[in-house]
Every structure is written in C-alpha cells, then in structure tokens.
C-alpha cells in the first residue's frame, strides 16, 4: 500500500506490519488446529499428501487421464495389469492409465471438498452469527429456513438437482451450499447466544462499539474453531457425495474423479472380471479422505468439547 506509507511516518509502518502479522497469527492460533491429537495429525498428513498430489498432478501423472493409450506395436493398451507395460496400476478396458486417473481424481476431490467446506462454513457461520446476535424476526426466519433444510433429504436432493442441471462437479457444491449450512448455522447460533451475554460484550457496547465491530472482534473469534470443525466435516461429505453421484451416473463425464472411475469400472464389469486394481484404488482414496476428515473433526471436538475425552 504505497499511498499509505506516504501518509504515515516511517516508524508507524513496521508497527503496522507487526500488527498485521500478529493479527494473522492470532487468527491461525484461534483456529486451534488439533496438532496434539495423533489421529488428527494422521488426518492432516493424509490431507497434506492429497493436496500435494493434486497440486503437482501434472508432474506426477505419467499420462493424460483421458487419453486412449497404445503400445509400441500400435495395439490398444487395454486391460493391462498393474506393472504390465510400465502402467503402475494397469489400464482401463478403454486403454486409459488408472494411476493417472487416480492422480487427477485427487484434483477434483480437492476442488470439490475445499469449496464445499468453505461454502458450508462461511454460509453457516454468517447465518449463525446474524441469527444468534440479532435475534428477533431475522432469527426466526433464518431458523425456519434451517428447519426446512433439515427436512430435505440430502442425497436425493443432490440427485434431483444433478438430473435437472447440466452435469457438473459444481452441482454437489451448490447442493451443499443450499442444504448443509444448516448444521453449522444452528451450532454457531447457539454458541453466539451464550457469547453475547458475556460481560465483555456489554463492555464493548458501553465503549461505543458498533454491532459489526462487536460481532467481528468479540464474538466471531470464539466460533472460528466451530466453523472449521464443520468445514472439515463438509470436506468428506462433499467428496463422498460427488462419488455417489458419479457412481449413479449423474456426474460430469468430462471430469475425472474417483467416483467417475468407480462408475467406469462398474459399467465395464470390472467387478465380475476381477479387475481389482481398477476399482480398489479410487475406493481406498475416497475412504482415506473421508476418514481423514473424520479424524480431524474428532480432534476438533476434543478441543471444543473436552468432556468427550472420557
């Protein structure tokens, strides 16, 4: 911000930078990553591995996942077993490299998981904050909306949505945004209800702080860990849901995802031909990320609600 440095003294600049860094650090600390919990640690490591694989997918995957491959003698390289002809996990019955599909699958999983988590956490947190802090009519309307969202069965809703819309991985994210904010919203709201009666919140009001300032400075920092808990639960949900949708054939045929791989394997009779190398790896990947999300959220719960430890 050069225009700001021009107006502030030289001494003020580093202190402002310091304030920024310490503010950032405060936020990171207030998220309370459950680093001391070994299971949560495993979860975080699993996420980290998939994250790196997704980021460096271009470098890791030996082939284009949709490319139909041929051997040097121009035969279709279909149904190769793992290791055969240099295909790490073999190929599909259409001659596509399974390992490359798996690697690129992590990209869509990451994309869906993270955006869904962000959307669910952000919408739920905002709804919960507004509802809990302001109360009254706004609260009543938002909570009736949440009741409606609770009444809609999630998976059938996503299927119907996917059937009516263009097939796309974003359908899942969209559906989660429409439905799954309800859990986050409810929990955040009840937390806010207790936080807003704290004496220091009243003190802030007496000091002349606006509602916005009170919410952001005195209330929101206390509910960030909750938002992250529900966000981390949403990651697993989103990936699982996308896999289900793809497996049922409502997925996006243009995007390689683990669910798509399963559907492809299933439709090509991989189960009856015993091509385990085709459907087990994507299945394992799905289980791993879902379990990782579960581990992390368990770690969070033990921080947030220590009584569960008994």
């Amino acid at each position: 911000m050069p225009s700001e440095t021009a107006t502030t003294t030289q001494a003020a600049y580093p202190s402002r930078l310091n304030a920024f860094v310490s503010g950032l650090w405060r936020i990171v600390r207030s998220i309370h990553l459950p680093l001391s919990d070994p299971f949560a640690m495993i979860g975080i490591i699993i996420y980290l591995v998939f994250f790196l694989v997704a980021v460096f997918a271009n470098q890791i995957a030996p082939h284009d996942p949709t490319e139909i491959l041929f051997t040097e003698s121009y035969d279709l390289a279909a149904d190769r077993l793992p290791g055969e002809d240099g295909f790490v996990l073999g190929t599909t019955s259409l001659g596509r490299d399974i390992f490359s599909q798996l690697v690129y699958g992590s990209q869509s999983a990451l994309l869906i998981g993270l955006t869904a988590a962000a959307v669910v956490a952000v919408i739920g947190t905002i709804v919960g904050l507004i509802s809990g802090y302001f109360g009254g009519v706004v609260d009543m309307m938002l909570m009736r909306l949440a009741d409606i969202a609770f009444g809609i069965p999630f998976l059938p809703f996503v299927i119907v949505l996917a059937a009516f819309m263009e097939p796309s991985i974003w359908n899942v994210v969209f559906a989660m945004a429409l439905i799954l904010w309800r859990d986050t919203g409810r929990v955040v709201r009840s937390q806010v209800l207790s936080l807003r009666t704290r004496a220091y919140v009243e003190a802030a009001r007496v000091s002349g702080s606006s509602n916005l300032k009170i919410v952001f400075r005195h209330i929101a920092p206390n509910i960030l860990p909750l938002s992250f808990l529900y966000g981390s639960i949403a990651i697993g949900w989103a990936i699982l849901t996308e896999a289900s949708i793809s497996f049922l054939g409502f997925g996006d045929p243009e995007t390689i995802s683990w669910g798509y791989m399963l559907q492809d394997a299933y439709a090509s009779q991989a189960l009856s031909t015993g091509a385990y190398y085709w459907f087990i790896p994507p299945g394992v990947c799905i289980v791993l990320v879902v379990v990782a999300g579960f581990f992390i959220s368990r770690g969070y719960e033990e921080i947030l609600f220590p009584k569960l430890k008994e």
């Binding site: 207030s30 004496a199 220091y200 003190a203 802030a204 400075r217 920092p221 206390n222």
Partner: peptide, 10 residues
C-alpha cells in the same frame, strides 16, 4: 466482575 469484563483474547 473484572475477570469477565475484559475480552480474554485482547
């Protein structure tokens, strides 16, 4: 109660 009147995070 001065223990509750100040935000513990600030």
């Amino acid at each position: 109660n001065p223990f509750e009147a100040l935000n513990p995070r600030l």
